[in-house]
Computed example of a mutant assay.
Amino acid sequence: MTGIFLRWVFAFVLVRATFNPTEWNYIQWVRRTYTEELPLTVLLGLILFIGYVIYLRATLRSIGGFGMFLVAALIAALIWVLIDWGVLSLEHSTLNMWLGVLAMSIVLGIGLSWSMVRRKLSGQFDIDDVDE
């Protein structure tokens, strides 16, 4: 369970570092300083890109595009229920952006962890997990 949580935390950090409603994110920083800090901008952008490639490749291999859609739809339905019950409101744009960051990180975290979850639920290993 700790491994799954850590994979989600790293996904959250990756998405949050790229964009969030505060001024402390890569996109806002690039808008302010790319002319003065172009080499650092490119370096950090490549590091973020590598993180996304790792997460997206693993997610697409484990749950596929349809699985990503299903997880996102489940999160959207949960948010819809919370709005319907009056727990959340669409009037708070900052909260809505944080919910988007959270939703994206959950999709990526589940995608990276799915092989572990499936193995624990079914007792079956993926072919990549079996030692020769």
Results as ranks from 00 to 15, higher is better:
residue 68 M to H: 07
residue 20 N to L: 08
residue 77 A to L: 15
residue 104 M to H: 06
residue 83 I to Q: 13
residue 2 T to E: 14
residue 98 W to Y: 09
residue 79 I to L: 15
residue 50 I to W: 10
residue 62 S to Y: 07
residue 89 S to Y: 10
residue 69 F to D: 00
residue 19 F to I: 09
residue 83 I to E: 15
residue 85 W to I: 12
residue 40 L to C: 09
residue 125 F to R: 14
residue 56 L to A: 05
residue 129 D to S: 13
residue 121 L to M: 13
residue 42 V to M: 11
residue 43 L to S: 03
residue 93 S to H: 14
residue 98 W to M: 03
residue 78 L to S: 04
residue 99 L to H: 04
residue 80 W to G: 14
residue 13 V to L: 15
residue 84 D to N: 12
residue 24 W to G: 05
residue 100 G to S: 00
residue 3 G to Y: 01
residue 5 F to Y: 01
residue 97 M to R: 05
residue 29 W to E: 01
residue 79 I to K: 05
residue 55 Y to S: 09
residue 106 I to E: 06
residue 67 G to I: 01
residue 48 L to E: 03
residue 109 G to P: 06
residue 62 S to E: 00
residue 117 V to R: 08
residue 12 F to W: 11
residue 51 G to C: 10
residue 100 G to C: 05
residue 47 I to V: 15
residue 39 P to Q: 12
residue 125 F to E: 09
residue 32 R to L: 07
residue 9 V to T: 10
residue 75 I to S: 04
residue 47 I to H: 03
residue 4 I to Q: 06
residue 25 N to H: 12
residue 123 G to W: 00
residue 26 Y to T: 04
residue 122 S to L: 11
residue 46 L to W: 07
residue 45 G to W: 04
residue 70 L to N: 04
residue 5 F to R: 02
residue 72 A to M: 10
residue 99 L to V: 08
residue 84 D to A: 14
residue 127 I to N: 11
residue 36 E to H: 10
residue 104 M to A: 15
residue 28 Q to R: 00
residue 56 L to N: 02
residue 21 P to V: 13
residue 131 D to G: 06
residue 116 M to N: 08
residue 60 L to R: 12
